[in-house]
Design a protein around this nucleic acid. Structure first.
Length: 493
RNA sequence: CGGGGUGUAGCACAGUUGGUUAGCGCGCCACGUUCGGGACGUGGAGGUCGGAAGUUCGAGUCCUCUCACCCCGACCA
Protein backbone atom coordinates (compact mmCIF):
# COMPACT_ATOMS: atom_id res chain seq x y z
CA UNK A 1 0.00 0.00 0.00
CA UNK A 2 2.69 2.44 0.98
CA UNK A 3 4.68 2.10 -2.19
CA UNK A 4 1.57 1.95 -4.32
CA UNK A 5 0.23 5.28 -3.20
CA UNK A 6 3.57 6.93 -3.68
CA UNK A 7 3.24 5.69 -7.23
CA UNK A 8 -0.14 7.37 -7.58
CA UNK A 9 0.03 9.23 -10.84
CA UNK A 10 0.06 13.01 -10.44
CA UNK A 11 -2.94 14.94 -11.69
CA UNK A 12 -0.75 17.07 -13.89
CA UNK A 13 0.95 14.10 -15.54
CA UNK A 14 -2.04 12.08 -16.66
CA UNK A 15 -5.42 13.13 -15.40
CA UNK A 16 -7.27 10.04 -16.59
CA UNK A 17 -4.80 7.67 -15.06
CA UNK A 18 -4.79 9.64 -11.83
CA UNK A 19 -8.56 9.33 -11.74
CA UNK A 20 -8.59 5.59 -12.36
CA UNK A 21 -5.95 4.84 -9.78
CA UNK A 22 -7.69 7.03 -7.26
CA UNK A 23 -11.02 5.26 -7.65
CA UNK A 24 -9.39 1.90 -7.11
CA UNK A 25 -6.94 2.83 -4.36
CA UNK A 26 -9.41 4.86 -2.34
CA UNK A 27 -11.55 1.73 -2.27
CA UNK A 28 -14.52 3.21 -4.12
CA UNK A 29 -14.93 0.74 -6.95
CA UNK A 30 -13.22 -1.70 -9.27
CA UNK A 31 -13.77 -3.39 -12.60
CA UNK A 32 -15.85 -6.53 -12.40
CA UNK A 33 -15.41 -9.77 -14.26
CA UNK A 34 -18.06 -8.64 -16.72
CA UNK A 35 -16.84 -6.30 -19.40
CA UNK A 36 -17.67 -2.68 -18.72
CA UNK A 37 -19.39 -3.35 -15.41
CA UNK A 38 -18.31 -2.00 -12.07
CA UNK A 39 -18.22 -3.29 -8.51
CA UNK A 40 -19.03 -0.43 -6.16
CA UNK A 41 -17.24 -1.19 -2.92
CA UNK A 42 -18.66 -0.36 0.52
CA UNK A 43 -16.86 2.96 0.83
CA UNK A 44 -18.00 4.13 -2.58
CA UNK A 45 -21.51 2.89 -1.98
CA UNK A 46 -21.68 4.78 1.31
CA UNK A 47 -21.22 8.01 -0.65
CA UNK A 48 -23.97 6.99 -3.05
CA UNK A 49 -26.29 6.21 -0.13
CA UNK A 50 -25.75 9.68 1.30
CA UNK A 51 -26.50 11.20 -2.10
CA UNK A 52 -29.59 9.07 -2.47
CA UNK A 53 -30.95 9.98 0.93
CA UNK A 54 -30.49 13.68 0.33
CA UNK A 55 -31.89 13.71 -3.18
CA UNK A 56 -34.82 11.57 -2.10
CA UNK A 57 -35.72 14.07 0.62
CA UNK A 58 -35.51 16.91 -1.87
CA UNK A 59 -37.72 15.08 -4.37
CA UNK A 60 -40.33 14.36 -1.74
CA UNK A 61 -40.52 18.03 -0.79
CA UNK A 62 -41.71 18.64 -4.36
CA UNK A 63 -44.42 15.98 -4.06
CA UNK A 64 -42.62 13.14 -5.84
CA UNK A 65 -43.12 9.57 -4.65
CA UNK A 66 -41.00 6.49 -5.23
CA UNK A 67 -42.16 3.48 -7.21
CA UNK A 68 -40.56 0.60 -9.04
CA UNK A 69 -40.99 -0.58 -12.61
CA UNK A 70 -39.63 -3.77 -14.23
CA UNK A 71 -36.09 -4.30 -15.41
CA UNK A 72 -37.20 -5.94 -18.65
CA UNK A 73 -38.98 -4.11 -21.41
CA UNK A 74 -40.72 -5.81 -24.35
CA UNK A 75 -38.82 -5.00 -27.49
CA UNK A 76 -41.90 -3.61 -29.18
CA UNK A 77 -42.29 -0.89 -26.51
CA UNK A 78 -39.02 0.67 -27.47
CA UNK A 79 -40.04 1.23 -31.06
CA UNK A 80 -43.25 3.10 -30.21
CA UNK A 81 -41.46 6.43 -30.03
CA UNK A 82 -39.38 6.85 -33.17
CA UNK A 83 -36.63 9.17 -31.90
CA UNK A 84 -36.36 7.29 -28.65
CA UNK A 85 -35.63 3.97 -30.31
CA UNK A 86 -33.13 5.59 -32.61
CA UNK A 87 -31.30 7.04 -29.63
CA UNK A 88 -30.99 3.83 -27.67
CA UNK A 89 -31.22 0.92 -30.13
CA UNK A 90 -27.48 0.71 -30.66
CA UNK A 91 -26.65 0.07 -27.03
CA UNK A 92 -29.26 -2.35 -25.72
CA UNK A 93 -28.71 -5.72 -24.09
CA UNK A 94 -31.37 -8.18 -25.26
CA UNK A 95 -32.84 -11.21 -23.48
CA UNK A 96 -33.68 -13.88 -26.03
CA UNK A 97 -34.02 -17.11 -24.03
CA UNK A 98 -35.31 -18.19 -20.66
CA UNK A 99 -33.56 -21.50 -20.04
CA UNK A 100 -30.17 -23.19 -20.10
CA UNK A 101 -29.43 -26.87 -20.53
CA UNK A 102 -26.45 -29.19 -20.13
CA UNK A 103 -24.27 -29.18 -23.20
CA UNK A 104 -24.83 -32.46 -25.07
CA UNK A 105 -21.03 -32.54 -25.61
CA UNK A 106 -20.50 -32.25 -21.87
CA UNK A 107 -18.91 -28.78 -21.98
CA UNK A 108 -20.88 -27.04 -19.26
CA UNK A 109 -24.20 -25.39 -20.04
CA UNK A 110 -25.59 -23.94 -23.23
CA UNK A 111 -28.69 -21.96 -24.12
CA UNK A 112 -31.63 -24.26 -24.71
CA UNK A 113 -32.72 -23.48 -28.28
CA UNK A 114 -36.23 -24.64 -27.36
CA UNK A 115 -36.48 -21.82 -24.84
CA UNK A 116 -36.44 -18.88 -27.25
CA UNK A 117 -38.78 -16.08 -26.17
CA UNK A 118 -41.64 -15.21 -28.44
CA UNK A 119 -40.96 -11.54 -27.90
CA UNK A 120 -37.44 -10.55 -26.99
CA UNK A 121 -36.93 -8.40 -23.91
CA UNK A 122 -34.66 -5.40 -23.54
CA UNK A 123 -32.78 -4.71 -20.34
CA UNK A 124 -33.86 -1.13 -19.65
CA UNK A 125 -31.51 1.57 -20.89
CA UNK A 126 -34.07 3.98 -19.38
CA UNK A 127 -37.68 3.38 -18.42
CA UNK A 128 -39.82 5.88 -20.32
CA UNK A 129 -41.49 3.21 -22.41
CA UNK A 130 -42.49 0.75 -19.72
CA UNK A 131 -43.56 3.59 -17.46
CA UNK A 132 -45.73 5.27 -20.07
CA UNK A 133 -47.25 1.94 -20.92
CA UNK A 134 -48.19 1.76 -17.22
CA UNK A 135 -49.34 5.37 -16.89
CA UNK A 136 -51.89 4.67 -19.60
CA UNK A 137 -53.79 2.63 -17.03
CA UNK A 138 -53.38 5.18 -14.27
CA UNK A 139 -54.71 8.26 -16.02
CA UNK A 140 -58.21 8.83 -17.28
CA UNK A 141 -59.35 12.12 -15.72
CA UNK A 142 -57.78 15.49 -14.92
CA UNK A 143 -58.34 14.43 -11.31
CA UNK A 144 -55.66 11.73 -11.74
CA UNK A 145 -53.02 14.30 -12.60
CA UNK A 146 -50.27 15.05 -12.01
CA UNK A 147 -48.51 11.70 -11.66
CA UNK A 148 -45.17 12.27 -9.96
CA UNK A 149 -43.07 9.12 -9.69
CA UNK A 150 -39.41 8.44 -9.22
CA UNK A 151 -37.53 5.18 -9.20
CA UNK A 152 -34.09 4.25 -7.93
CA UNK A 153 -32.73 1.48 -10.08
CA UNK A 154 -30.03 0.21 -12.36
CA UNK A 155 -30.01 0.59 -16.13
CA UNK A 156 -27.84 -0.92 -18.82
CA UNK A 157 -26.36 0.73 -21.86
CA UNK A 158 -23.92 -1.36 -23.83
CA UNK A 159 -21.22 1.27 -24.18
CA UNK A 160 -18.17 0.60 -26.31
CA UNK A 161 -15.71 2.21 -23.96
CA UNK A 162 -16.20 2.53 -20.25
CA UNK A 163 -14.66 4.32 -17.28
CA UNK A 164 -15.39 3.68 -13.62
CA UNK A 165 -18.38 5.79 -12.49
CA UNK A 166 -18.27 8.06 -15.55
CA UNK A 167 -19.43 5.54 -18.08
CA UNK A 168 -20.17 1.91 -17.27
CA UNK A 169 -22.34 -0.62 -19.03
CA UNK A 170 -24.57 -0.85 -15.99
CA UNK A 171 -25.10 2.08 -13.69
CA UNK A 172 -27.26 3.10 -10.75
CA UNK A 173 -29.45 6.14 -11.00
CA UNK A 174 -32.81 7.62 -10.25
CA UNK A 175 -35.27 8.43 -12.98
CA UNK A 176 -38.28 10.59 -12.35
CA UNK A 177 -41.26 10.47 -14.69
CA UNK A 178 -44.15 12.87 -14.43
CA UNK A 179 -47.43 13.36 -16.26
CA UNK A 180 -49.28 16.68 -16.33
CA UNK A 181 -52.50 18.22 -17.59
CA UNK A 182 -50.90 21.25 -19.16
CA UNK A 183 -47.85 22.07 -21.16
CA UNK A 184 -46.97 24.87 -18.81
CA UNK A 185 -47.11 22.68 -15.72
CA UNK A 186 -44.82 20.08 -17.32
CA UNK A 187 -42.30 22.69 -18.41
CA UNK A 188 -42.31 24.16 -14.91
CA UNK A 189 -41.72 20.71 -13.46
CA UNK A 190 -38.76 20.08 -15.74
CA UNK A 191 -37.19 23.35 -14.61
CA UNK A 192 -38.09 22.70 -10.97
CA UNK A 193 -36.24 19.39 -11.00
CA UNK A 194 -33.25 20.96 -12.72
CA UNK A 195 -33.15 23.42 -9.85
CA UNK A 196 -33.29 20.57 -7.34
CA UNK A 197 -30.26 19.02 -9.05
CA UNK A 198 -28.38 22.29 -9.12
CA UNK A 199 -29.10 22.90 -5.42
CA UNK A 200 -27.98 19.42 -4.56
CA UNK A 201 -24.79 19.76 -6.59
CA UNK A 202 -23.87 23.06 -5.05
CA UNK A 203 -24.93 22.55 -1.43
CA UNK A 204 -24.02 18.91 -0.94
CA UNK A 205 -21.43 18.06 -3.57
CA UNK A 206 -19.81 21.52 -3.41
CA UNK A 207 -19.92 21.33 -7.17
CA UNK A 208 -20.57 24.58 -9.02
CA UNK A 209 -22.77 23.92 -12.03
CA UNK A 210 -24.13 25.86 -14.96
CA UNK A 211 -27.81 25.44 -15.68
CA UNK A 212 -28.71 25.48 -19.32
CA UNK A 213 -30.57 24.09 -22.28
CA UNK A 214 -29.19 21.46 -24.62
CA UNK A 215 -29.09 22.09 -28.35
CA UNK A 216 -31.31 19.96 -30.59
CA UNK A 217 -28.32 17.82 -31.40
CA UNK A 218 -27.52 16.96 -27.77
CA UNK A 219 -31.12 16.62 -26.67
CA UNK A 220 -32.47 13.42 -25.06
CA UNK A 221 -33.98 11.02 -27.58
CA UNK A 222 -37.69 11.83 -27.62
CA UNK A 223 -37.58 15.12 -25.73
CA UNK A 224 -38.72 18.57 -26.86
CA UNK A 225 -36.32 20.28 -24.49
CA UNK A 226 -33.46 18.99 -22.38
CA UNK A 227 -32.24 21.02 -19.41
CA UNK A 228 -28.83 20.22 -18.00
CA UNK A 229 -26.40 21.02 -15.25
CA UNK A 230 -22.85 21.14 -16.54
CA UNK A 231 -19.78 21.03 -14.34
CA UNK A 232 -16.12 21.54 -15.11
CA UNK A 233 -13.54 19.03 -14.00
CA UNK A 234 -10.04 20.04 -12.94
CA UNK A 235 -8.60 19.25 -16.35
CA UNK A 236 -11.00 21.72 -17.96
CA UNK A 237 -13.29 19.13 -19.49
CA UNK A 238 -17.04 19.30 -19.00
CA UNK A 239 -19.15 16.68 -17.30
CA UNK A 240 -22.90 16.55 -17.83
CA UNK A 241 -24.02 15.96 -14.27
CA UNK A 242 -27.78 15.79 -14.47
CA UNK A 243 -30.56 16.28 -16.98
CA UNK A 244 -34.24 17.12 -16.88
CA UNK A 245 -36.36 16.67 -19.98
CA UNK A 246 -39.57 18.24 -21.15
CA UNK A 247 -41.03 15.45 -23.27
CA UNK A 248 -44.08 17.27 -24.61
CA UNK A 249 -46.79 14.84 -25.63
CA UNK A 250 -44.47 12.48 -27.50
CA UNK A 251 -44.69 9.58 -25.09
CA UNK A 252 -48.36 10.21 -24.30
CA UNK A 253 -49.10 9.88 -28.00
CA UNK A 254 -46.84 6.86 -28.45
CA UNK A 255 -48.49 5.04 -25.53
CA UNK A 256 -51.92 6.57 -25.89
CA UNK A 257 -52.13 8.24 -22.49
CA UNK A 258 -55.22 10.45 -22.66
CA UNK A 259 -57.40 12.08 -20.03
CA UNK A 260 -60.70 13.95 -19.95
CA UNK A 261 -60.03 17.56 -19.04
CA UNK A 262 -62.23 20.01 -17.15
CA UNK A 263 -63.86 21.03 -20.44
CA UNK A 264 -64.91 17.39 -20.85
CA UNK A 265 -62.75 16.77 -23.90
CA UNK A 266 -60.12 14.11 -24.46
CA UNK A 267 -56.48 15.25 -24.46
CA UNK A 268 -52.97 13.80 -24.27
CA UNK A 269 -50.98 14.40 -21.08
CA UNK A 270 -47.70 16.33 -20.94
CA UNK A 271 -44.56 14.65 -19.67
CA UNK A 272 -41.16 15.14 -18.06
CA UNK A 273 -38.35 12.85 -17.08
CA UNK A 274 -35.19 13.60 -15.15
CA UNK A 275 -32.26 11.69 -13.76
CA UNK A 276 -28.90 11.67 -12.09
CA UNK A 277 -26.59 8.70 -11.77
CA UNK A 278 -23.56 7.31 -10.02
CA UNK A 279 -21.67 9.45 -12.49
CA UNK A 280 -22.04 12.14 -9.83
CA UNK A 281 -19.49 10.23 -7.77
CA UNK A 282 -17.08 10.60 -10.69
CA UNK A 283 -17.80 14.33 -10.72
CA UNK A 284 -17.12 14.51 -7.00
CA UNK A 285 -13.76 12.82 -7.37
CA UNK A 286 -12.62 14.77 -10.40
CA UNK A 287 -13.63 18.15 -9.03
CA UNK A 288 -12.09 18.20 -5.58
CA UNK A 289 -9.40 15.56 -5.23
CA UNK A 290 -5.65 16.10 -5.30
CA UNK A 291 -2.38 14.17 -5.51
CA UNK A 292 -2.85 12.85 -1.99
CA UNK A 293 -6.18 11.28 -2.82
CA UNK A 294 -9.85 12.07 -2.46
CA UNK A 295 -11.21 15.28 -1.02
CA UNK A 296 -14.80 14.68 -0.03
CA UNK A 297 -17.27 17.43 0.79
CA UNK A 298 -18.24 17.11 4.47
CA UNK A 299 -21.93 16.91 3.60
CA UNK A 300 -21.39 13.66 1.71
CA UNK A 301 -18.36 12.12 3.38
CA UNK A 302 -19.18 8.73 4.91
CA UNK A 303 -16.71 9.57 7.68
CA UNK A 304 -16.57 13.29 8.48
CA UNK A 305 -14.04 13.16 11.27
CA UNK A 306 -11.44 10.56 12.11
CA UNK A 307 -9.65 10.50 15.44
CA UNK A 308 -6.26 8.81 15.56
CA UNK A 309 -4.51 8.09 18.86
CA UNK A 310 -0.74 8.11 19.12
CA UNK A 311 0.66 6.01 21.93
CA UNK A 312 3.41 3.66 22.96
CA UNK A 313 1.95 1.70 25.84
CA UNK A 314 -1.44 0.28 26.76
CA UNK A 315 -1.67 2.71 29.66
CA UNK A 316 -1.25 5.65 27.34
CA UNK A 317 -3.93 4.26 25.03
CA UNK A 318 -6.28 3.85 28.00
CA UNK A 319 -5.72 7.47 28.97
CA UNK A 320 -6.43 8.61 25.40
CA UNK A 321 -9.54 6.43 25.18
CA UNK A 322 -10.86 8.06 28.32
CA UNK A 323 -10.51 11.51 26.78
CA UNK A 324 -11.74 10.56 23.31
CA UNK A 325 -14.84 8.54 24.17
CA UNK A 326 -16.90 11.51 25.39
CA UNK A 327 -15.73 13.58 22.42
CA UNK A 328 -17.02 10.89 20.07
CA UNK A 329 -20.35 10.85 21.86
CA UNK A 330 -20.63 14.64 21.78
CA UNK A 331 -19.79 14.81 18.09
CA UNK A 332 -22.40 12.18 17.34
CA UNK A 333 -24.92 14.19 19.32
CA UNK A 334 -24.12 17.13 17.05
CA UNK A 335 -24.87 14.95 14.03
CA UNK A 336 -21.25 14.47 13.03
CA UNK A 337 -20.15 11.09 11.68
CA UNK A 338 -16.98 10.24 13.52
CA UNK A 339 -14.63 7.30 13.52
CA UNK A 340 -12.25 6.68 16.38
CA UNK A 341 -9.54 4.48 14.88
CA UNK A 342 -7.68 3.01 17.82
CA UNK A 343 -7.00 -0.27 16.05
CA UNK A 344 -3.47 -1.31 16.97
CA UNK A 345 -2.75 -3.17 13.75
CA UNK A 346 -1.78 -0.04 11.81
CA UNK A 347 0.74 2.60 12.68
CA UNK A 348 -0.32 6.24 12.97
CA UNK A 349 1.57 7.36 9.88
CA UNK A 350 -0.17 4.72 7.86
CA UNK A 351 -3.57 5.80 9.14
CA UNK A 352 -2.85 9.45 8.35
CA UNK A 353 -2.03 8.65 4.75
CA UNK A 354 -4.91 6.24 4.41
CA UNK A 355 -7.60 8.63 5.64
CA UNK A 356 -6.18 11.34 3.44
CA UNK A 357 -6.43 8.99 0.48
CA UNK A 358 -10.05 8.35 1.42
CA UNK A 359 -10.83 12.04 1.66
CA UNK A 360 -11.96 12.25 5.31
CA UNK A 361 -12.46 16.02 5.78
CA UNK A 362 -11.10 16.41 9.31
CA UNK A 363 -8.54 14.46 11.28
CA UNK A 364 -7.91 14.80 14.99
CA UNK A 365 -4.72 13.36 16.46
CA UNK A 366 -4.30 12.82 20.19
CA UNK A 367 -1.15 11.70 21.95
CA UNK A 368 0.26 11.75 25.47
CA UNK A 369 1.61 15.22 24.77
CA UNK A 370 -1.88 16.54 23.99
CA UNK A 371 -3.46 14.92 27.02
CA UNK A 372 -0.94 16.79 29.15
CA UNK A 373 -1.52 20.12 27.41
CA UNK A 374 -5.26 19.76 26.91
CA UNK A 375 -4.86 20.17 23.16
CA UNK A 376 -5.48 18.20 20.00
CA UNK A 377 -3.94 18.34 16.54
CA UNK A 378 -6.51 19.23 13.90
CA UNK A 379 -5.90 18.65 10.20
CA UNK A 380 -8.25 19.72 7.43
CA UNK A 381 -8.09 17.60 4.30
CA UNK A 382 -8.84 20.30 1.74
CA UNK A 383 -5.78 22.43 2.56
CA UNK A 384 -3.78 19.78 4.46
CA UNK A 385 -3.14 22.43 7.14
CA UNK A 386 -2.44 21.26 10.67
CA UNK A 387 -2.83 23.22 13.87
CA UNK A 388 -3.32 22.76 17.59
CA UNK A 389 -6.71 23.41 19.15
CA UNK A 390 -7.89 23.25 22.75
CA UNK A 391 -9.71 20.04 23.72
CA UNK A 392 -12.25 22.16 25.52
CA UNK A 393 -15.13 22.79 23.11
CA UNK A 394 -13.52 20.79 20.32
CA UNK A 395 -16.87 19.35 19.22
CA UNK A 396 -18.43 22.66 18.18
CA UNK A 397 -15.10 23.75 16.75
CA UNK A 398 -15.03 20.69 14.50
CA UNK A 399 -18.62 21.14 13.45
CA UNK A 400 -17.88 24.70 12.37
CA UNK A 401 -14.73 23.57 10.63
CA UNK A 402 -16.71 21.05 8.57
CA UNK A 403 -18.92 23.86 7.29
CA UNK A 404 -15.82 25.91 6.51
CA UNK A 405 -14.41 23.08 4.46
CA UNK A 406 -17.70 22.54 2.64
CA UNK A 407 -17.75 26.18 1.64
CA UNK A 408 -14.01 26.25 1.00
CA UNK A 409 -13.98 23.48 -1.57
CA UNK A 410 -17.02 24.95 -3.32
CA UNK A 411 -15.32 28.32 -3.58
CA UNK A 412 -12.14 26.71 -4.82
CA UNK A 413 -13.97 24.76 -7.51
CA UNK A 414 -15.85 27.88 -8.56
CA UNK A 415 -12.65 29.92 -8.81
CA UNK A 416 -11.08 27.15 -10.83
CA UNK A 417 -14.01 27.12 -13.24
CA UNK A 418 -14.01 30.87 -13.63
CA UNK A 419 -10.28 30.87 -14.25
CA UNK A 420 -10.80 28.39 -17.06
CA UNK A 421 -13.80 30.04 -18.70
CA UNK A 422 -12.96 32.19 -21.69
CA UNK A 423 -14.86 34.52 -23.98
CA UNK A 424 -13.70 33.66 -27.46
CA UNK A 425 -14.48 35.68 -30.60
CA UNK A 426 -12.35 34.30 -33.40
CA UNK A 427 -12.07 30.84 -34.87
CA UNK A 428 -8.27 30.77 -34.48
CA UNK A 429 -8.58 31.70 -30.85
CA UNK A 430 -11.21 29.01 -30.45
CA UNK A 431 -9.07 26.27 -31.94
CA UNK A 432 -6.06 27.26 -29.86
CA UNK A 433 -7.94 27.54 -26.60
CA UNK A 434 -9.92 24.33 -26.89
CA UNK A 435 -6.62 22.41 -26.86
CA UNK A 436 -5.89 23.84 -23.42
CA UNK A 437 -9.29 22.92 -22.01
CA UNK A 438 -11.93 24.96 -20.28
CA UNK A 439 -15.31 26.44 -21.14
CA UNK A 440 -15.42 28.63 -24.21
CA UNK A 441 -18.18 31.24 -24.32
CA UNK A 442 -18.72 31.86 -27.99
CA UNK A 443 -21.38 32.90 -30.46
CA UNK A 444 -23.08 30.24 -32.56
CA UNK A 445 -25.47 30.60 -35.47
CA UNK A 446 -27.99 28.17 -34.01
CA UNK A 447 -27.70 25.44 -36.65
CA UNK A 448 -26.97 21.77 -36.06
CA UNK A 449 -24.77 21.78 -39.11
CA UNK A 450 -22.37 24.34 -37.66
CA UNK A 451 -22.37 22.54 -34.32
CA UNK A 452 -21.37 19.29 -35.97
CA UNK A 453 -18.68 20.90 -38.09
CA UNK A 454 -17.14 22.40 -34.98
CA UNK A 455 -17.30 19.04 -33.25
CA UNK A 456 -15.57 17.34 -36.15
CA UNK A 457 -12.80 19.88 -36.30
CA UNK A 458 -12.17 20.38 -32.59
CA UNK A 459 -14.00 17.63 -30.63
CA UNK A 460 -15.74 20.45 -28.76
CA UNK A 461 -19.50 20.26 -28.30
CA UNK A 462 -22.01 22.79 -27.13
CA UNK A 463 -22.47 21.86 -23.50
CA UNK A 464 -25.46 24.11 -23.10
CA UNK A 465 -27.07 27.44 -23.74
CA UNK A 466 -26.92 28.88 -20.22
CA UNK A 467 -30.31 29.82 -18.78
CA UNK A 468 -28.90 33.09 -17.51
CA UNK A 469 -26.99 33.98 -20.68
CA UNK A 470 -27.47 37.68 -21.31
CA UNK A 471 -28.63 38.85 -24.72
CA UNK A 472 -25.62 39.92 -26.70
CA UNK A 473 -25.42 40.52 -30.42
CA UNK A 474 -22.48 38.85 -32.11
CA UNK A 475 -21.32 36.72 -35.00
CA UNK A 476 -21.01 32.95 -35.09
CA UNK A 477 -17.48 31.85 -34.31
CA UNK A 478 -17.50 29.48 -37.28
CA UNK A 479 -19.79 30.89 -39.97
CA UNK A 480 -19.90 34.56 -39.03
CA UNK A 481 -23.69 34.55 -39.18
CA UNK A 482 -25.54 36.64 -36.58
CA UNK A 483 -26.11 35.30 -33.06
CA UNK A 484 -27.93 36.79 -30.11
CA UNK A 485 -26.16 35.08 -27.21
CA UNK A 486 -23.09 33.12 -26.30
CA UNK A 487 -23.19 29.37 -25.69
CA UNK A 488 -20.71 27.16 -23.84
CA UNK A 489 -18.36 25.01 -25.88
CA UNK A 490 -16.09 22.41 -24.28
CA UNK A 491 -14.70 18.97 -24.65
CA UNK A 492 -16.49 16.61 -22.40
CA UNK A 493 -16.43 13.23 -20.66
C1' C B 1 -15.81 -3.23 -35.88
C1' G B 2 -10.75 -0.79 -37.54
C1' G B 3 -5.27 0.57 -35.60
C1' G B 4 -1.65 -0.53 -31.63
C1' G B 5 -0.21 -3.27 -27.17
C1' U B 6 -0.20 -6.89 -23.05
C1' G B 7 -1.13 -11.89 -20.86
C1' U B 8 4.33 -15.22 -15.72
C1' A B 9 2.04 -15.68 -7.41
C1' G B 10 -3.17 -11.34 -4.48
C1' C B 11 -0.86 -6.64 -7.16
C1' A B 12 3.05 -4.71 -10.38
C1' C B 13 6.81 -6.81 -13.30
C1' A B 14 11.91 -9.36 -15.00
C1' G B 15 13.02 -13.74 -17.45
C1' U B 16 19.29 -13.34 -22.64
C1' U B 17 20.61 -16.73 -29.20
C1' G B 18 15.29 -22.43 -26.26
C1' G B 19 18.75 -25.53 -21.24
C1' U B 20 17.36 -28.74 -16.38
C1' U B 21 14.92 -26.73 -9.47
C1' A B 22 10.85 -19.94 -12.84
C1' G B 23 12.78 -14.93 -10.27
C1' C B 24 12.51 -9.60 -7.97
C1' G B 25 9.51 -5.84 -5.49
C1' C B 26 4.98 -4.86 -2.90
C1' G B 27 1.25 -7.41 -0.24
C1' C B 28 0.22 -11.87 3.02
C1' C B 29 1.66 -15.22 7.64
C1' A B 30 4.96 -15.92 12.32
C1' C B 31 8.35 -13.81 15.90
C1' G B 32 11.10 -9.62 17.69
C1' U B 33 12.33 -4.37 17.85
C1' U B 34 9.17 -0.11 16.77
C1' C B 35 4.86 3.58 17.01
C1' G B 36 3.75 12.38 16.58
C1' G B 37 3.55 11.31 8.62
C1' G B 38 2.82 5.38 4.76
C1' A B 39 8.79 1.32 10.08
C1' C B 40 12.69 -2.40 10.21
C1' G B 41 15.04 -7.29 10.94
C1' U B 42 14.75 -12.65 10.61
C1' G B 43 12.03 -16.69 8.92
C1' G B 44 7.84 -18.60 5.96
C1' A B 45 3.57 -19.62 2.59
C1' G B 46 2.06 -18.71 -2.23
C1' G B 47 2.87 -20.57 -9.80
C1' U B 48 -1.22 -26.08 -14.30
C1' C B 49 3.90 -19.14 -17.09
C1' G B 50 -4.16 -17.04 -20.47
C1' G B 51 -5.85 -21.74 -23.37
C1' A B 52 -5.18 -25.56 -27.29
C1' A B 53 -2.29 -27.94 -30.74
C1' G B 54 2.77 -28.21 -32.83
C1' U B 55 8.50 -28.12 -33.61
C1' U B 56 12.40 -30.13 -30.24
C1' C B 57 16.38 -34.57 -26.40
C1' G B 58 14.37 -30.14 -23.90
C1' A B 59 9.41 -24.58 -24.59
C1' G B 60 7.79 -19.10 -20.05
C1' U B 61 11.08 -18.44 -24.51
C1' C B 62 10.07 -20.68 -31.37
C1' C B 63 5.54 -21.64 -34.93
C1' U B 64 0.05 -21.94 -35.65
C1' C B 65 -4.76 -21.23 -33.86
C1' U B 66 -7.72 -19.29 -30.03
C1' C B 67 -9.38 -16.50 -25.73
C1' A B 68 -9.11 -12.37 -22.50
C1' C B 69 -7.79 -7.58 -21.16
C1' C B 70 -5.71 -2.48 -21.96
C1' C B 71 -4.82 2.02 -25.06
C1' C B 72 -6.37 5.08 -29.65
C1' G B 73 -11.09 5.82 -32.92
C1' A B 74 -16.89 5.10 -34.05
C1' C B 75 -21.20 5.25 -29.46
C1' C B 76 -22.51 7.92 -24.79
C1' A B 77 -25.54 9.88 -18.28
Amino acid sequence: MAKELKNLTKRSENYSQWYNELVVKADLAEQSAVRGCMVIKPYGYAIWEKMQRQLDDMFKLTGVQNAYFPLLIPKSFLSREAEHVEGFAKECAVVTHHRLMNDPDGKGVVVDPEARLEEELIIRPTSETIIWNTYKNWVSSWRDLPVLCNQWCNVMRWEMRTRLFLRTAEFLWQEGHTAHATRDEAEQRAIQMLNVYADFAEKYMALPVIKGIKTANERFAGALETYTIEAMMQDGKALQSGTSHFLGQNFAKAFDVKYINKENTLDYVWATSWGVSTRLIGALIMTHSDDNGLVLPPHLAPIQVVIVPVYKTDDQLQAINTVVNPIVANLQALGVTVKYDNADNKRPGFKFADYELKGVPVRLVLGARDIENGTVEVMRRDTLEKHEAPLQGIEQYVKNLLEDIQQGIYDKALRQREAMTYRVDTWDEFKAQIEKGGFLLAHWDGTTETEERIKEETKATIRCIPLDAPDEQGRCIYTGRPSSRRVIFARNY
